[in-house]
């Protein structure tokens, strides 16, 4: 390539717009104005009050799964709230907007949300991961990366009791010249002292909070769990046991970060083995909330016909993710 062309190429190539790259799944020709309008649609949908059922509808749409007509109509209405005309029969565009809405939600800061506030997004992220475990493909692959990242960040965010560091520093008063009398504390000094007392109080609350203690206890339990030996009659039983135990040890509805890695360590002895999905499903079957039965075929007995066997570690992640989702979609916990 000549230097001129390289220069042109350098000018021409820039970072392509990720939004436009994703929206092309539902659009052929995207203009600047069209892109702006669709961004506004996604922004509005992502900013609307999130509920767990609503977020799970986005997930189902993102994976092109069926949702009731009334729900599809509701989502179309939500996407049309900025003035667009997104109709229920525009399945591909609706699915694409659902994916973009999820990505937008998973990109937003966690802020100071507690488990209660994180629940809808946590359920959605887990549902995305569960469906990917089952080998289903979303309308756009990026949603999986964002869901996985969000879930890891949220898991840590909830357990931040151990990361507060030392107490706040008290600002030193200005030095008094030698021989001069020490100045009387003025209103500004008293205010500064008051503010410091508040910060110290805050630090004390956080570092000795139940959240931090809970996180520490959880870590302790996980360490003992990893250190103890595994006794199971079969690989299938070992998978089920490990998943249920890990979920049981979790201090929050949203399991610990690196859950997949913890399971891998726990099941090291079975790492090279495979399990029958049908057998695992039979062993793990239980009543799951009706609202998510379609997302959890292992637990609800609706075995996905295209998957017959899986490696132990993959099966464990899949089962754990379904158990995780079941927990998140169950009755709300006060955490």
């Amino acid at each position: 390539m000549s230097q001129d062309q390289t220069e042109v190429a350098g000018e021409e190539s820039g970072v392509s717009d990720a939004f436009d790259d994703r929206i092309r799944e539902g659009v052929v020709v995207i203009t600047e104005d069209g892109s702006a309008a669709l961004r506004a649609t996604v922004d509005a949908a992502a900013s609307a009050k999130a509920t767990t059922p609503g977020m799970l509808s986005f997930v189902r749409l993102a994976f092109d799964l069926e949702i009731p007509d009334a729900e599809r109509g509701r989502v179309s209405g939500l996407f049309s709230s900025t003035g667009a005309a997104v109709t229920p029969d525009q399945r591909q565009l609706t699915a694409t907007l659902a994916v973009l809405t999820l990505i937008e939600r998973f990109s937003r800061p966690l802020g100071r949300r507690t488990m209660q506030g994180l629940l809808p997004d946590a359920a959605a992220a887990s549902a995305v991961i569960v469906l990917a475990d089952q080998g289903r493909a979303p309308v756009h692959p990026d949603v999986l990366g964002f869901a996985t990242r969000w879930r890891a960040m949220a898991a840590e965010h909830l357990r931040r009791g151990g990361g507060w560091g030392g107490p706040p520093e008290l600002a030193k008063p200005a030095e008094t010249p030698e021989g001069a009398p020490a100045p009387e504390p003025g209103p500004a000094d008293i205010e500064a002292l008051r503010a410091y007392a508040g910060e110290l109080n805050q630090w004390l609350r956080q570092t000795s909070s139940s959240a931090r203690l809970l996180a520490l206890e959880e870590q302790q339990g996980l360490l003992w769990w990893l250190a103890s030996s595994e006794r199971s009659p079969s690989a299938t039983a070992a998978v089920l046991g490990a998943c249920e135990e890990l979920l049981g040890l979790s201090a929050y509805s949203l399991g610990p970060p690196a859950a997949g890695e913890l399971l891998s360590r726990r099941l090291t002895g079975y790492a090279t083995e495979e399990v029958s999905i049908a057998d695992l499903s039979q062993l793990a079957a239980r009543t799951v909330p009706e609202e998510i039965a379609d997302l959890c075929p292992l637990l609800s007995g609706g075995r996905p016909s295209h998957v017959m066997t899986a490696g132990v570690l993959d099966a464990a992640r899949w089962l754990y993710d379904e158990l995780q989702l079941t927990r998140l979609a169950g009755p709300a916990e006060g955490q």
Binding site: D21, H140, D142, R149, M153, E156, L222, A258, E261
Partner: peptide, 21 residues
């Protein structure tokens, strides 16, 4: 042909988050 883009990498802040089997 889909154009994929990974999210910005996330650095776990805790030892547990950084755990690898």
């Amino acid at each position: 042909l889909q154009i994929a883009a990974d999210p910005e990498p996330y650095e776990p802040a805790t030892a547990l988050g950084r755990f690898r089997a």
